[in-house]
Design a binder for these strands. Structure first.
Lengths: 104, 104
DNA sequence: TGTATATATGAACATATCATCATATATTGG
DNA sequence: CCAATATATGATGATATGTTCATATATACA
């Protein structure tokens, strides 16, 4: 797998720019970072997320919808309970790189 | 049924959370992405950035201040001209990972 | 059925963000 | 000093964002 080298004279196309900025926007909010970080290794129900992070149920639900739209999380139903988990290893990897970087 | 509140073993400390979210916020705007992408391999003056990306001088200056505050860019003076360049290889690496990811 | 539980949704509000405009500052050369 | 050039700054306004509240939906089960 070789990588394309992008020269400075070549602008990013509209679509790439949009996807990249949307993705980083998703990671640019403390609440979403906490949720994603929690879902890193384990699935959680909405209420469990709310309880673990001390957030309102509605807040968590709204943010999960945001993350789900970007396909950063997925869910699985069990009765009335929805178990959410991370769904984009690459982006989760970016997040953890940034966390490691920030800690040093 | 109440559950034990999980001790925040996996929780991020306030400072890390702030730094990470700030960093991703910086990368979450198309204009800043374009600027950083331009500064990837080469230094540019403010006016050259504005011209290359078709942006207003003031817009570029404001965004450069933002990026400078986060130490993502640095500058060097030559007369009245300020040459900006990227100053955080790790974050630039994250950006390019995301760009590559978005392109596929 | 009907109630309880889990989650989603929409409206409303406060705040943050970004581009633009006008102007200020700083450096150089005459 | 003054003019020209490059950049920075502050104010403004439009739009985006995030949380909260109230309510709706969906599922399970008696």
């Amino acid at each position: 797998m070789e990588k394309e080298v992008q020269t400075n004279t070549h602008e990013l196309d509209e679509e790439t720019l949009f996807v990249v900025s949307q993705t980083f926007k998703a990671l640019g909010d403390p609440t979403r970072i906490r949720i994603l970080n929690l879902l890193c290794c384990e699935e959680y129900s909405v209420n469990d997320i709310a309880e673990a992070l001390n957030l309102g149920q509605s807040t968590v639900s709204h943010q999960l919808r945001f993350l789900k739209n970007l396909r950063l999380v997925k869910f699985r139903r069990e009765g009335t309970t929805l178990y959410y988990s991370s769904d984009d290893d690459h982006i989760m990897n970016l997040l953890h790189q940034a966390i490691d970087h920030a800690k040093h």
